[in-house]
Write a protein that binds this DNA or RNA. Structure first.
Lengths: 226, 226
DNA sequence: AATAAAAATGACTGACGGGTCATTTTATGC
DNA sequence: GCATAAAATGACCCGTCAGTCATTTTTATT
């Protein structure tokens, strides 16, 4: 799969070939992401992935050693091109409540049409059967996010922030529940993800949208957050 | 499966036979619950269930028409013998915050060694493949719990209770996340379910264990309440 | 005991799908 | 163009497992 500098009677890989292989690899990953998102890991058939990628089934195995490796490739491909979670561009907000809220809402917003929603659901719902997927996802996504939340929550003495520092999962919980709900409960109205996250931010931190105007450091007493 | 009053040359089912069949049915359900809990729906093999129940595979089909029906039977059997969620025995607490907290903590406590944890996880993680399971579970468990939360949260004017009324899922979220985390993250320390629920109750309602003494009716307004 | 209905059995079937590999197609170097 | 290596193909293999059914065992009745 990888060319080594060899003088033996091998052959040189041309630029054109390299690009073609790269394109094929990309096409496979794209098709796989779609299928995994649509059907989950177990139910996805490699024949379908191959067909969708315009490739024969055997070709998949020239690029990925197994179905699990293919999924790992999808995770890495889908997750890597984004900036690390640890950094924020805007340092406009200084209260940890605002920074936490901004961080979470940014992440939720970026979920919408990235492939990350599908990946997250697959890991959540089938991870116990495929521990390797959990490892990859944990390292690439979960740990950075939780670390970031803990760091932001560490700044203060507030008992609420202390609680979040102790259970950073509580700020992710609404997202997970929303994703699961929307996947499973097809017969009832879907949960509005940003809305439920804002609701949790209000409960947990007393945070509201309007907060960005008023430099009031305390929790607003009466938020009509309809 | 069901005997009709017939005069034709049928045979009468003796009490002994009836009990034997009942026992067999129970044994099958017990084995099925264990296997579904352990392996999930898709991965559970009916041959194993049969063996565990001390029965031949074909016998399963005398009692349940399919794997899905068997699961439905398990859900009904596991869920039905408990009291409805809508009622509480202790009306000692009058503040809705206390009643909500009591309600949630009671439910979490009762989760520990009932089969309900396993069922919940199966529905959560495989429900999208088996909508019927979701329907059964929604009707038997989810809707009653959410309704109860909404009812309890409706009593007051507090903006926090309003938020909970709007997103009752927020109070269940920590439980779901805890269950999923503990199933998936086998290499990191498990989440203490009662602890994370209490943490959420504190964030959402300002509720603490000690609160049962202090009759403070309002939500602690100040995050710096250390 | 004889008989027949009901219950139980487990070998078998058929669909499914991940993974393989002998063969074919395509690209490279001379 | 020719020779050869790399890449691609897809028919095939093989294990799995829900569900079936001809046969055997148990039970009720006379």
């Amino acid at each position: 799969m990888i060319e080594l500098g060899k003088s033996a009677p091998g052959r040189m890989e041309t630029e054109r070939t390299r690009l073609k292989k790269q394109a094929k690899r990309t096409a496979i990953l794209k098709a796989a992401l779609e299928e995994f998102t649509e059907n989950g890991f177990a139910k996805t058939r490699l024949a379908t992935v191959a067909q969708k990628a315009g490739v024969a089934k055997g070709t998949l195995y020239l690029y990925f050693a197994s179905k699990e490796e293919l999924f790992a490739g999808v995770v890495e491909e889908t997750l890597s091109p984004q900036e690390p979670y640890g950094e924020e561009t805007s340092e406009d907000f200084h209260r940890p409540e605002d920074r936490l809220s901004r961080f979470l809402l940014d992440n939720v917003a970026s979920l919408r049409d990235s492939g990350r929603t599908g990946i997250a659901l697959v890991v959540l719902t089938e991870g116990h059967l495929f521990p390797r997927l959990v490892d990859i996802y944990t390292q690439a996504v979960l740990t950075p996010i939780l670390d970031r939340i803990m760091t932001l929550a560490q700044t203060e003495e507030s008992p609420r922030l202390k609680t979040i520092h102790r259970f950073p999962q509580l700020l992710m919980a609404p997202v997970l529940v929303g994703l699961l709900w929307n996947r499973i409960m097809t017969s009832s109205p879907p949960i509005d993800l940003p809305a439920i996250v804002k609701a949790q931010l209000f409960l947990a931190l007393g945070w509201t949208d309007e907060n960005e105007n008023g430099p009031d450091t305390t929790v607003p007493a009466e938020p009509h957050l309809q």
